[in-house]
């Protein structure tokens, strides 16, 4: 056949690798949406179940896409490509910078909405670079709550007080902590807004065929957090562990593990821990690292990770990312991260 090419080829065409993961979402007829935080950020492709990070894979060959005109035994090239788009499965994330924090202060919710102007829950879901499933999981993790169609995040103290009420109610009514009915619980929680209870259950219980089951390690962690937050000054690690043990509601016994609190505390001095929240940290990486080293001179990657991983938008290996702003020194078998 004769082969032609347009003199001016059309560069609006792109080739995307139909990887098995992507094909699967298509087989399931999932909705696919390209998303990005803003016009200068990475591109993600979100389906109902997966999030793909889109990268460009360049090659050195000439690839021409042609339309084949079988009748006239010719083909005409209309596009020429030096790259393919490569979708790689990553974990999605929700950008909550516009979502207000709701604490129980006596303020009417309608007034709160007027004051803070929260995004609609549907919009938040629509713009998040996360698949539907991932969104739901992370929304629960964040204590996200949908009230009258608005997206808000429940404040820490509110969550803890709801959680305490739920636990004491379960204990008081002798309900099975590993298989209880949410409806029955709801009925016995008189003063608690159902949305709040829903949020707290989404975070601290798993749904099983037999009913809801409390996630004890997670609950343990939250009480640890509460103790950490209650003293802002550094405390001795052993004193902290004792206070943590004492913090649980009566007749509710769970084990504790300081590793579960990584990302919520720093070690300003040896053997001392201090609550440290990532929420107020600067978004600029240089400033962020500066802050972190101000509070703690030397870090393990594991303990630093929760404070910096959100900045690694290019999905670099975290070790390499950290090295852009800090020194990562090998000391024996371990690595420590220090100021540069």
């Amino acid at each position: 056949m004769d082969i032609y090419s347009w003199l001016q080829r059309d560069d609006s065409f792109h080739l995307i690798q139909m990887t098995p993961d992507l094909v699967k979402t298509m087989e399931n007829n999932e909705r696919l949406i390209f998303k990005s935080r803003d016009r200068d950020s990475s591109i993600f492709l979100c389906s109902d179940s997966k999030t793909f990070h889109i990268r460009k894979k360049n090659h050195s060959n000439t690839v021409i896409v042609l339309k084949h005109d079988k009748e006239n035994a010719k083909a005409i090239g209309f596009a020429s490509m030096d790259s393919e788009l490569e979708p790689k499965v990553v974990s999605g994330s929700i950008d909550i910078s516009d979502v207000p924090l709701f604490e129980e202060t006596g303020e009417e919710f309608t007034d709160f909405v007027k004051r803070t102007n929260p995004p609609s829950f549907a919009d938040l879901r629509a713009v998040s670079t996360a698949s539907k499933t991932e969104f739901d999981v992370q929304w629960a993790e964040l204590n996200g709550c949908e009230i009258d169609g608005h997206a808000v995040i429940l404040g820490f103290n509110l969550v803890v007080s709801v959680l305490k009420t739920i636990i004491t109610t379960l204990v008081a009514y002798d309900m099975d902590q590993e298989a209880f009915s949410a409806t029955k619980l709801q009925e016995r929680l008189e003063d608690i807004r159902p949305e709040f209870a829903r949020t707290v259950l989404a975070q601290f219980a798993t749904k099983t065929p037999a009913g809801y089951s409390l996630d004890k390690p997670k609950i343990s962690r939250w009480f640890g957090l509460q103790v950490l937050r209650s003293t802002l000054a550094p405390v001795k690690e052993e004193d902290f562990l004792i206070n943590w043990k004492d913090a649980f509601p009566a007749f509710f016994d769970v084990s504790i593990d300081i590793q579960s609190l990584v990302g919520s505390f720093v070690r300003p001095f040896p053997n001392m821990v201090q609550f440290y929240n990532s929420a107020g940290l600067p978004q600029d990486p240089v400033q962020r690292f500066k802050e972190l080293f101000k509070i703690q001179a030397s870090w393990s990657l594991e303990e630093m990770k929760p404070y910096v991983e959100d900045l690694n938008s290019r999905n670099l290996k975290l070790e390499s990312f950290v090295m852009k702003y800090a020194r990562r020194k090998r000391i024996g078998k371990n690595y420590v991260i220090t100021r540069r």
């Binding site: 082969i3 090419s5 003199l7 139909m18 094909v23 298509m26 087989e27 050195s60 060959n61 000439t62 690839v63 021409i64 896409v65 042609l66 339309k67 084949h68 005109d69 079988k70 083909a75 090239g77 020429s80």
Partner: peptide, 30 residues
């Protein structure tokens, strides 16, 4: 979909909608 094995019966370079790809190791000067 699914993109299983290609149907036997000789290679068909163009798709049912009539698209095909040519790849050359080099630059094509036009």
């Amino acid at each position: 979909i699914p993109f299983g094995d290609l149907v036997e019966g000789g290679p068909v370079i163009s798709t049912s909608s009539g698209l095909m790809i040519l790849e050359i190791q080099g630059d094509l000067n036009l």
